[in-house]
Amino acid sequence: MTVPTVQHTEGKKDVTFRVFRFNPQVDSKPYFDDYTIPVEKGITVLRSLNYIKEHIDGSVSFRAFCQAGICGSCGMRVNGLSQLACTTQVWDVLAKSREPGIIKVEPLRNLPLIKDLIVDMDPLVDKMKHYSNWVDSTMPEAEMGKKEFLISEAEFLRYDKATDCILCASCVSECSILRANKDYVSPAVLLKSYRMSVDSRDSLHEQRLAELVKDHGVWDCTHCYRCQESCVKSIPIMDAIHGIREDAIESRGMKDTSGSKHAEAFMIDIEKKGKLVEATLPIRTNGVIWTLQNLLPMAVKMIMKRRTPPPPPLVKSAKGIKIFREMFREMTEHVKQDHKSHKN
């Protein structure tokens, strides 16, 4: 579909928006509609969608509210990348577009589809509830409003950046774990959990953490960094995830979870040899019984195909291991110092 009266002034480009369409009432499966409109410099994807809705097809459905990058309503995938439609410049996207002149607009991934570009946010809210994403104040309700907690600027700065999160769910959409496991806690909820746990006013640290180290929790993250790369507010989400993990291992002593054991095994191997001893990793992470029950068939197959990792005695130390160990020790020391200063 093309607008009938295209007036070409200078500085305008014809852009085709390839919009994901799905109306559960009539469509058995999704499809794409193409809308070609003239777009000048400075126009955002959201303004283009508004134009399409108002002038070409009123049934194109998407959410939008503040239109200024503050409320987080218009998260969607533009040419494959999850972002806010209201802060995304059409010309910038065009410059990187694989198909010239075409911008593909799709709903966020990893959340149930409702219609066209609208997905259901309820699963995210449910997870916020499950992981107690709130401050449970140490102050009794009857005492509230009488005096302030005294909080240092240093403590404020610890959660300042995390409170920038607008729950647009771009990170949720980009998360590689969520694609495989819908029950995974999700990056935004980890970020919020971290924000609560470093707040000295909160009394739920232990309970929240106990929940976070269970299945589908903080140890399921594989550090792909896609959440952080797609964050529309440039929040270092991975720092928060690492923060929760360090918290779990160092200060909480929760060494009984497979996630923390896995991380610990990594640390020991890297310190000793500068590389992984993969053959025994499952045993050290999940124990002998679990490994025999779950991985034996695969191990047999690997032996048959001669794909087994070398047994531990054959894993030689990496080159330059001495210098590496020195660096390793220095880093560990830094992390410890960091922890100390956080607690003060």
Binding site: S137, M139, M144, G145, E148, L150, T163, R201, D202
Partner: peptide, 22 residues
């Protein structure tokens, strides 16, 4: 004053002065 303190008490991240007050 009461309501701002109450908001602070339930977790609002106010910026802080050098003496650690709001």
């Amino acid at each position: 004053p009461k309501i701002i303190r109450e908001l602070e008490n339930i977790g609002t991240p106010w910026s802080r002065l050098e003496d650690n007050t709001i």
